[in-house]
Computed example of a mutant assay.
Amino acid sequence: MSNRIVFSYAHPDDESFLSACLIRQLAESGDQPALLLATRGDAGGKNGAYAHLSKMDLGHLREKEMGRAAGVLKLDAVEFLGFPDGKLAECDEQAFLQGVVAFLNRRRPSGVFTFPPDGGNFHPDHMAISRITTKAVVGGQCPSVKQLYYTMSEPVMNAGHKPTFSVDTKPMWDVKAEALRAHDSQIIGIERYFGKLHDFPETKRYESFVIAWEQGVFWPEKSEDCAREELGLR
Protein backbone atom coordinates (compact mmCIF):
# COMPACT_ATOMS: atom_id res chain seq x y z
CA MET A 1 0.00 0.00 0.00
CA SER A 2 1.30 3.46 -0.90
CA ASN A 3 2.38 5.80 1.88
CA ARG A 4 0.27 8.82 0.98
CA ILE A 5 1.71 12.26 1.68
CA VAL A 6 -0.06 15.64 1.48
CA PHE A 7 1.52 19.06 0.98
CA SER A 8 -0.56 21.94 2.36
CA TYR A 9 0.45 25.37 1.09
CA ALA A 10 -1.03 28.79 0.42
CA HIS A 11 -0.43 29.55 -3.27
CA PRO A 12 0.32 27.87 -6.59
CA ASP A 13 4.14 27.80 -6.91
CA ASP A 14 4.76 27.27 -3.15
CA GLU A 15 5.08 23.56 -3.91
CA SER A 16 7.75 24.15 -6.56
CA PHE A 17 9.68 26.68 -4.49
CA LEU A 18 9.81 24.49 -1.40
CA SER A 19 9.41 20.83 -2.26
CA ALA A 20 9.43 20.09 -6.00
CA CYS A 21 12.16 17.46 -5.79
CA LEU A 22 10.69 15.80 -2.71
CA ILE A 23 7.28 15.55 -4.39
CA ARG A 24 8.77 14.01 -7.53
CA GLN A 25 10.86 11.56 -5.47
CA LEU A 26 7.78 10.46 -3.55
CA ALA A 27 5.85 9.94 -6.77
CA GLU A 28 8.67 7.92 -8.31
CA SER A 29 8.87 5.80 -5.15
CA GLY A 30 5.26 4.72 -5.58
CA ASP A 31 3.61 7.29 -3.34
CA GLN A 32 0.52 9.28 -4.31
CA PRO A 33 1.54 12.80 -3.23
CA ALA A 34 -1.29 15.33 -3.20
CA LEU A 35 -1.36 19.09 -2.89
CA LEU A 36 -3.84 21.30 -1.06
CA LEU A 37 -3.72 25.02 -1.85
CA ALA A 38 -5.66 27.51 0.24
CA THR A 39 -5.89 30.12 -2.56
CA ARG A 40 -5.72 30.34 -6.34
CA GLY A 41 -3.01 32.97 -6.12
CA ASP A 42 -5.21 35.60 -7.76
CA ALA A 43 -3.53 38.45 -5.88
CA GLY A 44 -0.04 37.36 -6.95
CA GLY A 45 2.39 39.69 -8.66
CA LYS A 46 2.21 39.64 -12.46
CA ASN A 47 4.96 40.14 -14.99
CA GLY A 48 4.46 42.42 -17.97
CA ALA A 49 2.83 39.83 -20.20
CA TYR A 50 0.02 39.31 -17.67
CA ALA A 51 -0.28 42.77 -16.12
CA HIS A 52 -3.62 43.38 -17.84
CA LEU A 53 -5.38 40.41 -16.23
CA SER A 54 -8.16 40.82 -13.70
CA LYS A 55 -7.93 38.95 -10.42
CA MET A 56 -10.44 36.42 -11.69
CA ASP A 57 -8.50 35.84 -14.90
CA LEU A 58 -5.21 35.60 -13.03
CA GLY A 59 -6.74 33.01 -10.72
CA HIS A 60 -7.86 30.91 -13.70
CA LEU A 61 -4.41 31.26 -15.28
CA ARG A 62 -2.64 30.22 -12.11
CA GLU A 63 -4.83 27.14 -11.84
CA LYS A 64 -3.74 26.16 -15.36
CA GLU A 65 -0.10 26.84 -14.50
CA MET A 66 -0.49 24.67 -11.41
CA GLY A 67 -1.85 21.90 -13.61
CA ARG A 68 1.29 22.02 -15.76
CA ALA A 69 3.54 21.99 -12.68
CA ALA A 70 1.54 19.08 -11.23
CA GLY A 71 2.25 17.09 -14.38
CA VAL A 72 5.97 17.73 -14.03
CA LEU A 73 5.96 16.74 -10.36
CA LYS A 74 3.60 13.77 -10.90
CA LEU A 75 1.21 14.95 -8.23
CA ASP A 76 -1.72 12.58 -7.82
CA ALA A 77 -4.18 15.37 -6.99
CA VAL A 78 -4.37 19.13 -6.54
CA GLU A 79 -7.24 20.88 -4.76
CA PHE A 80 -7.91 24.58 -4.21
CA LEU A 81 -9.89 25.73 -1.19
CA GLY A 82 -10.49 29.04 -2.98
CA PHE A 83 -10.04 31.41 -0.04
CA PRO A 84 -9.01 35.02 -0.84
CA ASP A 85 -5.36 35.37 -1.75
CA GLY A 86 -3.56 37.72 0.61
CA LYS A 87 -6.33 37.50 3.20
CA LEU A 88 -6.08 34.01 4.68
CA ALA A 89 -5.52 35.42 8.15
CA GLU A 90 -8.95 37.11 7.87
CA CYS A 91 -10.87 34.01 6.75
CA ASP A 92 -13.49 32.34 8.88
CA GLU A 93 -11.31 30.00 10.90
CA GLN A 94 -13.85 27.22 11.26
CA ALA A 95 -14.55 27.11 7.52
CA PHE A 96 -10.83 27.18 6.79
CA LEU A 97 -10.13 24.40 9.28
CA GLN A 98 -12.94 22.22 8.01
CA GLY A 99 -11.70 22.62 4.44
CA VAL A 100 -8.26 21.33 5.42
CA VAL A 101 -9.69 18.55 7.60
CA ALA A 102 -12.02 17.38 4.83
CA PHE A 103 -9.19 17.15 2.30
CA LEU A 104 -6.90 15.27 4.69
CA ASN A 105 -9.63 12.82 5.59
CA ARG A 106 -10.40 12.15 1.93
CA ARG A 107 -6.74 11.51 1.13
CA ARG A 108 -5.92 9.74 4.43
CA PRO A 109 -2.22 10.62 4.39
CA SER A 110 0.28 9.31 6.90
CA GLY A 111 2.36 12.48 6.64
CA VAL A 112 1.63 16.16 6.01
CA PHE A 113 4.06 18.92 4.98
CA THR A 114 3.38 22.62 5.41
CA PHE A 115 5.06 25.93 6.26
CA PRO A 116 6.57 26.50 9.71
CA PRO A 117 4.70 28.87 12.04
CA ASP A 118 6.75 31.83 10.76
CA GLY A 119 5.64 31.03 7.22
CA GLY A 120 9.24 30.81 6.04
CA ASN A 121 9.26 34.53 5.26
CA PHE A 122 6.53 35.88 7.60
CA HIS A 123 4.01 36.06 4.75
CA PRO A 124 0.59 36.22 6.48
CA ASP A 125 -0.92 33.64 4.10
CA HIS A 126 1.94 31.21 4.73
CA MET A 127 1.57 31.65 8.47
CA ALA A 128 -2.20 31.13 8.27
CA ILE A 129 -2.03 27.84 6.33
CA SER A 130 0.66 26.60 8.72
CA ARG A 131 -1.51 27.40 11.74
CA ILE A 132 -4.66 25.83 10.32
CA THR A 133 -2.91 22.73 8.98
CA THR A 134 -1.16 22.23 12.31
CA LYS A 135 -4.46 22.62 14.16
CA ALA A 136 -6.11 20.06 11.87
CA VAL A 137 -3.35 17.51 12.42
CA VAL A 138 -2.59 17.86 16.13
CA GLY A 139 -6.24 18.36 17.10
CA GLY A 140 -7.07 14.74 16.38
CA GLN A 141 -9.48 15.41 13.53
CA CYS A 142 -7.33 13.59 10.94
CA PRO A 143 -6.60 10.16 12.45
CA SER A 144 -4.57 8.83 9.53
CA VAL A 145 -1.86 11.47 9.98
CA LYS A 146 1.10 10.22 11.99
CA GLN A 147 3.68 12.93 11.19
CA LEU A 148 3.64 16.66 10.55
CA TYR A 149 6.66 18.22 8.83
CA TYR A 150 7.55 21.88 8.41
CA THR A 151 9.73 23.36 5.73
CA MET A 152 12.87 24.67 7.40
CA SER A 153 13.27 28.36 8.17
CA GLU A 154 15.76 30.54 9.96
CA PRO A 155 13.48 31.12 12.99
CA VAL A 156 12.98 27.37 13.34
CA MET A 157 16.74 26.85 13.24
CA ASN A 158 17.27 29.71 15.72
CA ALA A 159 14.88 27.93 18.07
CA GLY A 160 17.32 25.01 18.16
CA HIS A 161 15.78 22.66 15.58
CA LYS A 162 17.83 21.06 12.84
CA PRO A 163 16.56 19.64 9.56
CA THR A 164 15.30 16.09 9.91
CA PHE A 165 16.18 15.46 6.28
CA SER A 166 17.12 17.37 3.15
CA VAL A 167 16.74 16.72 -0.57
CA ASP A 168 19.64 17.64 -2.82
CA THR A 169 18.07 19.40 -5.81
CA LYS A 170 21.20 19.39 -7.96
CA PRO A 171 20.64 15.93 -9.52
CA MET A 172 17.00 16.89 -10.19
CA TRP A 173 17.43 20.56 -11.06
CA ASP A 174 15.93 20.11 -14.52
CA VAL A 175 12.72 18.85 -12.88
CA LYS A 176 12.52 21.67 -10.34
CA ALA A 177 13.31 24.29 -12.96
CA GLU A 178 10.62 22.92 -15.28
CA ALA A 179 8.04 23.00 -12.48
CA LEU A 180 9.01 26.57 -11.63
CA ARG A 181 8.80 27.63 -15.27
CA ALA A 182 5.25 26.31 -15.39
CA HIS A 183 4.30 29.22 -13.11
CA ASP A 184 5.09 31.71 -15.86
CA SER A 185 2.93 34.53 -14.47
CA GLN A 186 5.23 34.54 -11.41
CA ILE A 187 8.54 34.23 -13.25
CA ILE A 188 9.90 37.59 -12.09
CA GLY A 189 9.61 36.61 -8.43
CA ILE A 190 10.87 33.11 -9.17
CA GLU A 191 14.00 34.39 -10.92
CA ARG A 192 14.53 36.97 -8.19
CA TYR A 193 14.84 34.07 -5.74
CA PHE A 194 16.52 31.35 -7.84
CA GLY A 195 18.19 33.37 -10.59
CA LYS A 196 17.88 32.39 -14.24
CA LEU A 197 16.59 28.85 -14.15
CA HIS A 198 19.06 27.49 -16.69
CA ASP A 199 21.78 28.02 -14.08
CA PHE A 200 21.83 25.83 -10.98
CA PRO A 201 21.63 28.03 -7.83
CA GLU A 202 24.14 26.51 -5.42
CA THR A 203 22.90 28.70 -2.55
CA LYS A 204 19.39 27.25 -2.97
CA ARG A 205 20.58 23.67 -3.33
CA TYR A 206 18.61 21.88 -0.62
CA GLU A 207 14.94 21.42 0.18
CA SER A 208 15.01 20.89 3.95
CA PHE A 209 12.31 19.72 6.33
CA VAL A 210 11.91 19.19 10.07
CA ILE A 211 9.47 16.89 11.83
CA ALA A 212 7.37 19.03 14.15
CA TRP A 213 4.90 16.47 15.49
CA GLU A 214 4.55 12.70 15.55
CA GLN A 215 1.62 10.85 17.13
CA GLY A 216 1.15 13.35 19.94
CA VAL A 217 4.81 14.29 20.48
CA PHE A 218 6.03 17.73 19.45
CA TRP A 219 9.52 18.12 17.96
CA PRO A 220 10.50 14.44 18.27
CA GLU A 221 14.07 13.50 17.50
CA LYS A 222 14.31 11.39 14.38
CA SER A 223 17.23 10.38 12.21
CA GLU A 224 17.30 11.23 8.53
CA ASP A 225 17.47 7.55 7.57
CA CYS A 226 14.41 6.75 9.68
CA ALA A 227 12.42 9.68 8.28
CA ARG A 228 13.27 8.81 4.70
CA GLU A 229 12.37 5.18 5.28
CA GLU A 230 9.00 6.09 6.78
CA LEU A 231 8.27 8.37 3.81
CA GLY A 232 9.13 5.56 1.42
CA LEU A 233 12.05 7.41 -0.15
CA ARG A 234 14.79 5.40 -1.78
Rank of each mutant, 00 (worst) to 15 (best):
192 R>Q: 14
177 A>H: 04
168 D>W: 07
159 A>G: 12
184 D>V: 08
143 P>L: 02
196 K>P: 11
187 I>Y: 02
135 K>F: 03
157 M>Y: 02
168 D>V: 08
155 P>R: 01
156 V>C: 03
176 K>W: 09
140 G>R: 06
147 Q>N: 12
153 S>D: 08
173 W>G: 00
195 G>M: 05
142 C>A: 14
182 A>I: 03
137 V>I: 14
188 I>F: 10
189 G>H: 08
152 M>L: 10
179 A>V: 01
166 S>F: 05
152 M>F: 08
135 K>R: 15
156 V>F: 04
143 P>A: 05
173 W>N: 00
150 Y>M: 06
160 G>V: 11
176 K>L: 08
154 E>V: 15
147 Q>F: 04
180 L>S: 01
166 S>I: 07
197 L>N: 09
149 Y>Q: 05
165 F>S: 01
166 S>M: 14
159 A>H: 04
194 F>V: 11
145 V>P: 06
172 M>Q: 11
138 V>K: 03
163 P>I: 09
186 Q>P: 11
143 P>D: 01
190 I>N: 00
155 P>S: 03
152 M>Q: 14
198 H>D: 15
187 I>T: 08
163 P>E: 09
197 L>P: 04
156 V>P: 00
159 A>S: 15
198 H>M: 07
142 C>H: 02
190 I>Y: 03
155 P>L: 01
161 H>P: 04
151 T>D: 04
143 P>F: 00
174 D>I: 03
160 G>N: 08
153 S>I: 06
194 F>N: 06
151 T>H: 12
165 F>W: 11
194 F>Y: 15
194 F>K: 07
168 D>T: 10
176 K>C: 07
192 R>K: 13
158 N>G: 03
152 M>E: 12
145 V>A: 07
171 P>D: 10
168 D>Y: 07
171 P>G: 10
157 M>Q: 10
139 G>D: 09
142 C>I: 05
143 P>R: 00
147 Q>A: 14
172 M>N: 05
159 A>T: 03
145 V>H: 03
164 T>H: 07
185 S>Q: 10
165 F>N: 01
135 K>I: 02
186 Q>K: 08
138 V>Y: 05
169 T>P: 03
154 E>M: 13
149 Y>P: 07
147 Q>S: 15
136 A>D: 08
156 V>L: 15
160 G>L: 09
161 H>R: 11
188 I>Q: 10
197 L>F: 09
173 W>T: 00
154 E>L: 15
156 V>I: 14
178 E>K: 08
174 D>P: 01
162 K>S: 15
165 F>K: 01
160 G>I: 11
144 S>M: 06
146 K>R: 15
172 M>R: 08
145 V>N: 04
182 A>G: 06
185 S>K: 06
186 Q>D: 13
167 V>L: 13
184 D>H: 13
172 M>H: 13
159 A>Y: 02
157 M>R: 11
190 I>G: 01
173 W>S: 00
141 Q>R: 14
139 G>C: 12
150 Y>T: 02
137 V>W: 03
138 V>M: 07
161 H>L: 15
151 T>W: 04
170 K>P: 01
146 K>G: 14
147 Q>E: 13
160 G>Y: 13
145 V>I: 13
169 T>W: 02
142 C>Q: 04
141 Q>M: 14
172 M>Y: 13
140 G>M: 07
175 V>H: 00
148 L>G: 07
181 R>C: 02
165 F>C: 03
185 S>P: 11
166 S>G: 09
193 Y>H: 13
178 E>R: 07
147 Q>P: 01
